[in-house]
């Protein structure tokens, strides 16, 4: 394997609520190499976003990381204190949030919000910081960035705001970007433009990317690797073509089956029966078993990590080894 930017080992993030323990992230392991794009896929509530926040140490009480290691360029982030984490955040590790309406402070001008990010990490003058902010806005395709710098967030459209958020993430050319559903709610042309920009960054600067999404079609076009999350656990990982062409876990299989495709026009969309389980006091065993067509008595125990094929991991007693129809 090439140089790993991020190597997560056995990470668990639990929320200790009055009603019980919510295992939002439960013993997950994955890694991203320099310049590679990892697609983290799952339904809403599967723990994708919490995984993202765990990586930069922004899980708020009652949640906390209970076990595991987060090795970023060899340093374990779970061992760092708040001050050291803060030096990394927005600098070496940047995050792009899900909701473009809410991520920018509504009462501060764009330049304020960008310049403070530059000056938090680099000892440069305001003028330089402003210059860099303007360049970053231009890079994400915002027309006349000089004038737009003095605007307030509400003067931008939703898509524009998202681009501003992405520009802020790019300010320090980070080594790792965690993007939480960054292109949902953008129209297709802008989405393509941003995807291209991000890919270029990955290639040229060597930025590693974690792309959190529920949209398999984005992943198919963008990611190198994929990790599928279900109920707080990663059930399957592998190279993106491999997993999409030959899903092993019944859940991945169902997920792919429920994506409408041009080839399967006219045929019925398959859907996964049942609902995502509540993560509160989740019982032992495979969380997918109540919805799984292949489940049997064995699934009442926790399936261990297995490595059925080179470069892939899987958590299932009954993987779907035959080809997808």
């Amino acid at each position: 394997m090439s140089e790993l930017t991020l190597d997560v080992q056995g990470l668990s993030t639990h929320f200790f609520t009055r009603a019980g323990v919510v295992k939002a992230v439960d013993d997950i392991s994955f890694s991203v190499a320099r310049g590679r794009v990892l697609g983290l896929v799952g339904e809403s509530g599967s723990g994708k976003s919490v995984t993202g926040f765990s990586l930069i140490g922004l899980v708020d009480p009652p949640g906390r990381i209970t076990t595991g290691k987060i090795l970023f360029q060899g340093r374990d982030l779970t061992k760092l204190d708040e001050r050291e984490l803060r030096d990394l955040r927005g600098n070496r590790i940047a995050m792009i949030f899900q909701d473009p309406m809410m991520t920018l402070n509504p009462v501060l001008r764009i330049d304020t919000q960008m310049i403070e990010t530059v000056m938090a990490h680099d000892n440069v003058s305001r003028e330089v910081a402003r210059q860099r902010s303007r360049d970053a806005l231009g890079m994400v395709g915002i027309p006349s960035p000089e004038e737009r710098l003095t605007s307030y967030p509400h003067q931008f459209s939703g898509g524009m705001r998202k681009r501003v958020a992405i520009a802020i993430a790019l300010l320090h050319r980070p080594d790792l970007i965690i993007a939480d559903e960054p292109t949902t709610a953008l129209d297709v042309t802008i989405q393509a433009q941003i995807l291209a920009e991000v890919q270029r960054l990955a290639r040229e600067v060597g930025t590693a990317l974690i792309w959190i999404t529920h949209d398999l079609s984005v992943i198919a076009g963008l990611a190198d690797d994929i990790a599928v999350m279900y109920a707080g656990r990663i059930v399957e990982t592998g190279a993106v073509e491999e997993v999409l062409d030959r899903p092993l876990h019944p859940y991945t299989h169902g997920l792919i089956g429920s994506v409408p495709s041009r080839n399967a026009r006219g045929s019925r969309l398959r859907q996964i029966p049942g609902m995502t389980p509540s993560l509160l006091n989740l019982p032992v065993g495979c969380a997918f078993r109540s919805r799984c067509p292949r489940a049997d008595a064995a699934c009442a125990a926790d399936p261990p990590d297995s490595f059925p094929v080179e470069g892939r991991t899987l958590r299932c007693f009954h993987p779907q080894l035959e080809m997808v129809a």
Binding site: I56, R86, N91, A94, F97, N105, P106, V107, E116, A165
Partner: peptide, 24 residues
């Protein structure tokens, strides 16, 4: 979210409170 995003940018906690939150 804007508070979390401000923290994710790595700015100091006092700036988050006294500039971002207080202004709101």
């Amino acid at each position: 979210d804007y508070v979390k995003f401000a923290r994710a940018k790595g700015i100091s906690p006092s700036r988050v409170v006294f500039v971002h939150v207080l202004k709101n």
